[in-house]
Nucleic acid binder design. Structure first.
Lengths: 232, 232
DNA sequence: TTGAAATCTTGATAATTATCAAGAATTGGC
DNA sequence: GCCAATTCTTGATAATTATCAAGATTTCAA
């Protein structure tokens, strides 16, 4: 792989503390790929032959069943995905497609498992990462079971605003159709949810959302650290 | 703890392969507790001071937000729960209460983390367990986002029937209110969903559900291994 | 710059799910 | 075995969400 991207990967929690030799060995076997937008990288049910590491761009993890389709998560640099499938040597539970032009590092699963078996530091990092991911999905499940569509959108906006620096403006990084799928609603409903939030200072123009009454929005959204805080 | 229960715990995937000395050390610090039904053991937001291991009975993991409450999972022997919170030393994302009289082994979190740090075999088992749990929650999320209430119930019945030995009879181990919360609906709606499934051979009498037309039910439920197979 | 394609929004309507209010059935203590 | 308490079911109605059908807007390639 291009060594210029390596430091970024090395800084990932997952790899930061591990021994140089092991990291090098992992990277030796890895290769970096560039993908155009809307390319499907992985398909649910397929075996997990590689661990994927987002270096640039974005990947939507989604799942389909009985003609319906939904987004589960959007992966952004620098993170890994499908770690659980790799570690269990199990089929993917989700498919993945790029949402934009993306650069992705692919590490053969066997190598991940091999290093995992002999590098304790790496193993510990893997556990921390997995535990964090587990908690992320639990939060998502809680959000879906305990909130209605408008509340989910409101909390998403507040989370994203904070994530993007707290400037009162949210720049959507995905199209609204994907956002709707992520939030578990139809695109039509997302439009209506935005209309519902107008009195709470949510001004939509294209992909730019201005939050002009954050306190009002917050009192509607009632964010909870046990659902919305990404660090908890 | 009563040594009579130890073999069961030792057989858990999580502990089966680890060194005797380390297992003993873990169990040394642990203690076994008996709890009556409907006792709340853990509360979301609290620090994770113990790893819990179900030895007997059942525990409902649930979460609340804004006056609403939902079940996330029912834990049965012999399994651990809240492993992710323990490993990350993070607050619980879920509360837990016994659904019946239960015997539960409590291992102080520090001990788990200590052994984890020095026993590679244990660490590997922890990762497999965590990865399995992660995948379990993803499946649950998929089920909720891709299916309606009747389909969720139908698949639950099919899964449980298989789990209980494929005799065509499902014996509900929880009351219907809890089942409704687990499946993400109101108790009223669960009653109606059972009525909807009557033409598909679902005969309800109290907690005993007879499935007399499994093929018909299956053709409605359209179970998917990527959602419903507990081993995948 | 323009026009076709895609995305997004809006309206009308339908399906799904929740709420409220009784009544029926079941359970558990005495 | 009986009665009170709880759980479950049913009906009526409301709220939420989805679907279908246009129209408006945006995007992007020529």
């Amino acid at each position: 792989m291009r060594s210029i991207d390596l430091p970024l990967v090395r800084e990932l929690d997952l790899f930061a503390e591990m021994e140089e030799a092991n990291f090098d060995e992992l990277m030796q076997a890895a290769f970096l790929q560039r993908f155009p937008p809307q390319v499907q990288l992985i398909t649910e049910g397929d075996p997990a032959d590689f661990l994927y590491i987002m270096v640039e761009g974005g990947v939507e993890l989604f799942a389909a069943n009985g003609g319906r389709e939904t987004s589960i998560e959007i992966m952004r640099p620098v993170t890994t995905f499908i770690l659980a499938a790799v570690l269990r040597d199990a089929p993917f539970l989700m498919s993945g497609r790029t949402v934009e032009s993306s650069k992705i590092l692919m590490v053969p699963s066997e190598n991940v498992r091999a290093i995992f078996a002999r590098d304790q530091v790496f193993a510990r990092a893997v556990v921390r990462e997995l535990a964090a991911r587990y908690r992320g999905v639990v939060k998502s499940l809680k959000s879906h079971k305990l909130r209605n569509a408008v509340e989910r959108l409101a909390n998403y906006l507040l989370r994203t605003e904070t994530e993007q620096g707290g400037t009162g403006v949210v720049q959507l990084q995905i199209d609204k159709r994907t956002l709707a799928a992520l939030l578990g609603m139809t695109p039509e409903n997302l439009s209506r949810a935005f209309v519902t939030l107008k009195p709470y200072g949510v001004e939509v123009s294209g992909r730019e959302i201005r939050l002009t009454k954050i306190d009002d929005l917050r009192s509607l959204a009632k964010p909870s650290p046990l659902i919305d805080d990404p660090t908890t």
